[in-house]
């Protein structure tokens, strides 16, 4: 009897967890792409998978969150275009009434881009690809970071081109 009660409770907890995460994805999602934080609308219920492994976005949200746009030749940003595999087109695009939805997480898998997802808060973080990072490393160019001065004014590394920079970390204890 006790075992049965335990199984019922365990099932209820699992169900509530699934419902809770499902609910988070149906309200709003936050996408962080190239450090840009964008809140995007919820997809129709038919596009929410139980395991929350897919992030479907409208083409307008795709552009707002990532600067990528859908073109006949593929998904493009500036001069860079990634063709959508013809045989797997439905994994990337879904027409729901008059709205075209794009599977941003599937696109990340195609590019081998790392994605971290917090199911409870519906936050999706898209990180730089290893190959992209290694591009910096092969040239040994320092990333163009910004740091505040003593009065809080931000300065970027690029302001110091033409000068040697000693980037020293210290603590004020």
């Amino acid at each position: 009897m006790q075992k049965m009660r335990f199984l019922v409770y365990a099932s209820l907890i699992c169900l509530l967890t699934v419902i809770n995460s499902f609910a988070a994805e149906t309200v709003r999602r936050v996408v962080i792409y190239d450090n840009l934080v964008t809140e995007i609308g919820a997809p129709p219920a038919s596009l929410i998978s139980v395991d929350n492994s897919d992030l479907w976005v409208t083409l307008a949200d795709l552009k707002r969150a990532t600067k990528f746009v859908l073109k006949p030749q593929g998904v493009c940003r500036d001069q860079l275009c990634f063709p959508i595999p013809k045989k797997r087109r439905t994994a990337f695009l879904s027409q729901q009434g008059s709205v075209t939805w794009f599977n941003l997480s599937e696109f990340a898998r195609l590019l081998r881009q790392p994605v971290a997802h917090d199911v409870e808060t519906a936050v999706w973080y898209f990180g730089p690809r290893a190959e992209e990072q290694n591009g910096y490393l092969s040239s040994f160019t320092a990333p163009n970071f910004k740091l505040p001065d003593m009065s809080g004014k931000l300065h970027s590394l690029s302001e110091f081109r033409g000068k040697k920079v000693l980037l020293l970390t210290w603590a004020s204890w």
Partner: peptide
Amino acid sequence: APQNSEWAQAAAEFGLAEYLYHQGKSAA
């Protein structure tokens, strides 16, 4: 050291953790 796919995924997880923490969601 050059990046590999596991390290790139680690960086994404870290970036997400930082975002959540600064949003006041430290438990998450």
